[in-house]
């Protein structure tokens, strides 16, 4: 596994949000998903910097979506995780699960290898 291809914690959260959101993933929904599930209030700048990095690594792709009035006429940018991204997310989750296995009392809901 290449060192530069390893995922950081926030990258894992973003990729997981993309998997959950599917075709509806764009800045607002990704932020909301991370805030609701991970309890992290993320700045849009941090999110887009991470998405841009993941795109450069070849884990996600993006397309320009529709513009709406409430967005001030600006188009959405939709993101989708690709096969490489899913594979890397899987590896990271497995590594995390292996490291956490057997330590601490974790909530029963934590099933990283599922």
């Amino acid at each position: 596994m290449s060192k530069t291809k390893n995922l950081g914690e926030f990258e894992i959260l973003v990729l997981a949000a993309l998997v959950r959101l599917g075709a509806d993933a764009y800045g607002v929904t990704i932020r909301r998903e991370i805030e609701e599930r991970a309890g992290r209030d993320v700045s849009v700048g941090a999110l887009y910097a991470t998405l841009s990095r993941l795109e450069q690594k070849g884990y996600v792709s993006s397309r320009v979506g529709e513009a709406t009035a409430e967005r001030g006429g600006r188009a959405k940018r939709h993101y989708i995780i690709n096969a490489n991204g899913k594979e890397q997310l899987d590896k990271s989750a497995l590594a995390l699960g292996n490291m956490l296995k057997g330590i601490g009392p974790w909530p029963k809901t934590l099933n990283l290898q599922a």
Binding site: G27, V28, V44, Y48, E70, R71, G72, A75, K76, R77
Partner: peptide
């Protein structure tokens, strides 16, 4: 400030997201 730090070419989706959330 966002335009200045982000650059015009990259700022559209970011400003759009902020506008959407701000409106709400």
């Amino acid at each position: 400030l966002i335009l200045l730090t982000c650059g015009k070419e990259n700022s559209a989706p970011l400003l759009g997201d902020l506008a959407e959330e701000y409106t709400r």
